[in-house]
Write a protein that binds this DNA or RNA. Structure first.
Lengths: 216, 216
DNA sequence: CTTAAGGTAAGTCAAGCGCCTGACTTAAAG
DNA sequence: CTTTAAGTCAGGCGCTTGACTTACCTTAAG
């Protein structure tokens, strides 16, 4: 049996072409600088409404691209979580937060666009919420955040929230920065995604453990 | 004498209207989501080519908005630099890097848009370079970076570059995040821009002083 | 084999865009 | 006072965009 779907395979192939083309264009030029037509053409679709037909609005397309990667990233995070010992420290939780994205990019291999895509979507006022929803929908991610917070009981809640936001920004934007450097042929401070993740984790841990200047 | 310029005042008033309207729209919706026409209309100009007439391309308009604020920010940084003692430490240099933007926003008072504007421009692939040029053109900024690097002789050069990039992202995006929270009426972790700057400096210093995991 | 369904191609449409042109208004120069 | 130059306004032109319509073609079901 060839599956019951010769047709369905072609459809999902077309969807995949559109997702890939859109991810690349959005990453390189910004979401709002690319029209649905351009995405359709870049995907090799003569029909200029292919995006609308398969995905609906541009926001729906963005969500679909995010979900396509989220599965793999979740798997990586689940594996890292499973590898944590009995008395996890800040480093353990930080790794679970930081490493999934860089490791995912490394596994994709070759040139990638997803990190820059995420940076673009996260910064866009109209799409920011989509990214937040898709991210926070992950129970394993919340588990990491909770675990980390339990490791930092001395940190005032507001400062914890503040530094969590900082870490979130770095986790999104630093891989994007490295990805861009690779795309443009510029030198990078780390030779592979794994080392880049280590450098990022080092810095974020330092950020979380930094002494707090008392308010006046 | 009313100056020799009744006319010139009106012109610069129009330019100011356009700059203010554009800064606000770009900050709220993203640069690429706003047309020059919309900017002209928001500035109360019946002519739909007002932006083109006064500023040229959209990139030129963005540059003009940046420069309008850069003057004040430079003044603040110069004052902070002048207040540094004989043996400056990491905290001194970090303050000179971190505080100018939040203090500038505080002085503007009321609702502001410049931080979000900077975040949008910095993230836009087509405009990123403009922001870098305008920023690095400041000798006082370079002085801060050099001073800081002299305080961190033990940090490998690549790690120093890496963490400098992280600090840059936080300095741009964290004020933007606070500004957005204020605009949307959400609670903020700090009650004023000065305290926000302190929290940011604390974290960035921790980031710079964090131990470096040795490469394998 | 026939038929219905669904995906793709191709063309059309109104709306909005940047850009250009020309007319009007007004401050400053001769 | 006349002339000049500059800022503003009003509108048209060509192009792109998202949305819609139609025709064709392949597949899976009857």
């Amino acid at each position: 049996m060839t599956g019951r779907t010769v047709r369905a395979e072609q459809v999902s192939a077309t969807r995949e072409l559109i997702l890939t083309a859109a991810e690349r264009l959005f990453a390189e030029r910004g979401v709002n600088a690319v029209s649905n037509r351009q995405v359709s053409e870049a995907a090799g679709q003569g029909n200029n409404t292919a995006v609308g037909y398969h995905f609906g609005t541009k926001a729906d397309l963005v969500r679909a691209i995010v979900r396509k990667h989220t599965v793999r990233i979740e798997e990586i995070r689940a594996r890292l979580l499973a590898g944590i010992g009995d008395s996890p420290g800040v480093r353990d939780w930080a790794d679970c937060l930081v490493r999934p994205m860089p490791e995912h990019l490394g596994r994709l291999g070759g040139p990638t666009w997803f990190a820059r895509f995420c940076a673009q979507v996260t910064t866009d006022p109209a799409l920011h919420q989509i990214m937040m929803e898709e991210s926070l929908a992950s129970p394993s991610l919340r588990q990491c955040i909770d675990g980390l917070n339990r490791c930092l009981p001395d940190l005032p809640p507001e400062v914890r929230a503040e530094r969590g936001e900082m870490a979130r920004h770095l986790i999104v934007h630093m891989p994007a920065e490295r990805e861009r450097a690779l795309a443009e042929g510029r030198p990078t401070s780390r030779s592979n995604w794994d080392d880049a993740a280590t450098g990022l984790a080092d810095a974020i841990i330092g950020l979380w453990l930094a002494p707090v200047t008392p308010g006046r």
